[in-house]
Design a protein around this nucleic acid. Structure first.
Lengths: 340, 340
DNA sequence: TTGAAAGCGCTAACAG
DNA sequence: CTGTTAGCGCTTTCAA
């Protein structure tokens, strides 16, 4: 089955390749007679012609491809994402992109190859980067002069668009809620707190709330690991080992909160009576654990939609750098208990 | 910043473009003198040259792109996948592909455009399809003569490679375990049971186990919906509405099992004393729910790895159709209680 | 309103 | 061992 090209269509329709190209791209009606246009369309249908986007890209310098970079949750691990958060985000990105005629080029973070290489390699029209990475790799990207959207990161950059939430506020909200319920000894459980990442901001929010209440931040209440179930499950033991006196914890991700709950239970604690927890994200898992997890809700799907939209907007008509902050809210469930 | 092409490199190195191309593709040493090769590499580095894969594909008819199609979990919903299962799978596919120099072209199932269109559009070298789809769309794919790997589907096809698990056995294992623990009235909770899908096989396994034990399969014990938390949460009410007498359920996906547990609890049931549940997949969520979910474990990550590997193998050297079945096992946790 | 022709950046015979 | 050259399939001036 030989590949059918624009040439074949042209021959079939008795026109030139130019005409075919016109019919296919410029919404026909403008420059081509309805009759010719129809003939071309018929030929296309008859031959079951499908344009070769590679060739198109080569000459038009437009790929209709959006690059998406998703972080490695656990360094060195083969998984880009074990956290369901990324699945949801990606899902919404894919959907939005597809609706607008774009395909997604998915990639984890390269060690050897820089993103800018991939971008140049494939000539993606825009790129969405989730999470924070070494700043220098972003520098290269800047040279590319294609729209870049940074999701969930706080790197300062004069050019790249960003989309995220107010993580600091979220951390503050979560912790404040715990304080309001009478808790004084509150643990902070999170993944690695990297320089410009969301975890760091959530941590700042945690401290904000503590400070407001005049509660000192104590290092022994801080638990840093990886954003995954296994780490969270191990935290309660570590708490005991430290001889901790915490009555509550702010888990900077739902998966951590869920793991905490489970780990605590395993140690014989009664929840929420003995220990209160607030999570972050509002994933399905928050509703599944028992007690269900009070958490900071964010609209993941909207995040994905906006990320794509920013790329699209930037693509037609330059636009000044945008910083989009999506709203969050505290969702009350059953994992927090008032202390008397 | 003008694009630097192979020509520029050639000029810089004082050689022809052919030579550059040779150095870049055919592991240099063979046909090119070390010295020339070195000069070219220097020029590449100096100019910071990155090959344009589009152009390369156009002439070599090789894109180093693998298409991945992930199903819509809930029909009509914008999400490809809310089930963390897909995130994990995708993760492993991406990682494996990248290690072998392939990039991923991600796509949800199109309604308008067929997969074969995308495949032809972009000229992907191979395609991985997860889940089952209308058979006719696969027919078109066959014409493409590129390797296709079907993951988790039971469509009969003489050409496409497949990779999956023995879902029927899984269903049987799960249900049999319940029976062994003395249960006689066992519900089956799953998403839509489509013709050649995994849910159907799991359902068959459920029936197998029941038949072996001489227990009649009753329609009133069957709960079909979507593979999502919300449906699962609603099942317990439906059970009461039906005036059901079930003491156990086989949930054909962990997310359903988790939802069931939660929903049952909400109705005041004590678990596992009042009700036993077995899930399927062994996702994180199975360890998080309370009681933690006894489930059928499958190696999702291996599934992804093998899928890519099959494509790669097929790509160099034709190979007869492969059908890979990965092992599964029953993981005992706390959601099943012996009935006396 | 349509066609001829020159590339887009790279590969791969075929020569030399 | 290296260079010439003809495409890959499509877009897009520029003419007709």
């Amino acid at each position: 089955m030989k590949r059918v090209g624009i040439k074949d269509v042209a021959r079939e329709a008795g026109v030139s390749t130019t005409t075919v190209s016109y019919v296919l791209n410029h919404k026909s009606s403008e420059t081509i007679s309805a009759e010719t246009s129809q003939r071309v369309m018929n030929a296309v249908a008859k031959l079951n012609y499908v344009p070769n986007l590679n060739a198109r890209s080569l000459s038009s310098r437009k790929t209709n491809l959006i690059g998406v970079v998703i972080p490695q949750t656990e360094p060195g691990k083969e998984f880009m994402f074990s956290n369901p958060f990324y699945g949801e985000l990606l899902s919404s990105v894919e959907y939005t992109a597809r609706k607008h005629g774009y395909h997604l080029l998915l990639s984890g973070p390269q060690s050897d190859q820089s993103y800018s290489s991939i971008a140049r390699n494939r000539g993606v029209d825009g790129i969405i980067i989730v999470g924070s990475y070494p700043t220098h790799s972003l520098g290269e990207l800047r040279q590319l002069s294609i729209p870049v959207v940074l999701v969930d990161t706080y790197v300062k950059d004069p050019v790249f668009h960003t989309i995220g939430i107010d993580d600091r506020l979220g951390g503050q909200l979560a912790t404040h809620h715990l304080i309001e319920q009478g808790h004084r000894h509150i643990a902070f459980v999170s993944g690695a707190v990297s320089e410009q990442g969301v975890m760091q901001k959530r941590f700042l929010g945690y401290m904000d709330a503590l400070n407001e209440a005049g509660i000192p931040v104590k290092e022994q209440h801080l638990y840093f690991g990886t954003v995954g179930l296994d780490f969270a499950l191990s935290v309660p033991q570590e708490m005991t080992r430290r001889g901790s006196v915490e009555t509550a914890a702010f888990a900077a991700a739902d998966i951590l909160g869920a793991g905490l709950i489970k780990g605590l239970r395993k140690l014989g604690k009664r929840l929420p009576d003995d220990f209160s927890i607030v999570g972050f994200d509002d994933l399905d898992i928050a509703r599944v654990c028992d007690p269900s997890l009070t958490t900071i809700r964010q609209d993941i799907s909207a995040k994905g939609r906006h990320a794509v939209q920013l790329i699209l907007d930037a693509l037609d008509g330059t636009m000044e750098k945008q910083e989009r902050i999506l709203p969050i809210s505290l969702v009350l469930r059953d994992s927090v208990q008032k202390v008397i």
